[in-house]
């Protein structure tokens, strides 16, 4: 079976074709780098996505956050629920872990807030 994909790894957005046999990817074409091949492999078997969103802080501030690695695609909405239920405490620096282990990733801040730096 052949499956057509659009690579989301970088802005080039290569059109990929993955060849599947018994649910396994046996070959990938159309990619222009190794990362494209890896993407096709996981996308056909267990798709993953990074999540970027915002989180409320104790004083009502809006903190941008992200998962520090991709999580299973079908858990993105549940991840959003967890983040939206929580409140972050200031001060916070870029890269600080705000929530640990959400579907295998940490939720980290992408902006400094409540201290020195870019508010």
């Amino acid at each position: 079976m052949k499956r057509e994909l659009t690579c989301i790894v970088c802005p080039v957005g290569c059109s990929l074709i993955a060849d599947l046999e018994n649910g396994k990817v046996v070959s990938v074409s159309g990619n222009s780098c190794q990362r494209g091949r890896d993407y096709a492999q996981t996308e056909c078997v267990a798709p993953m996505r990074s999540v970027t969103t915002t989180m409320r802080c104790c004083g009502g501030e809006i903190l941008p956050v992200k998962t520090d690695r991709p999580i299973p695609k079908n858990q993105v909405m549940d991840c959003m629920k967890i983040i939206n239920q929580r409140v972050a405490h200031l001060p916070i620096a870029v890269g600080d872990v705000i929530i640990e282990n959400v579907f295998g990733a940490n939720i980290v801040a992408t902006k400094n807030m409540g201290g020195l730096g870019n508010e």
Binding site: P11, T52, T53, P64, K66, V94, K111, N112, G117, N118
Partner: peptide, 27 residues
């Protein structure tokens, strides 16, 4: 500052940054 999604800086820093993270590298 408002582009909180990632996809910035792939060419320059060889990693996927969000907008605020990319801005912070310069600030």
């Amino acid at each position: 500052k408002q582009c909180i999604h990632n996809g910035f800086g792939l060419h320059t820093f060889h990693e996927e940054l969000t907008g605020p993270e990319y801005a912070w590298k310069y600030e």
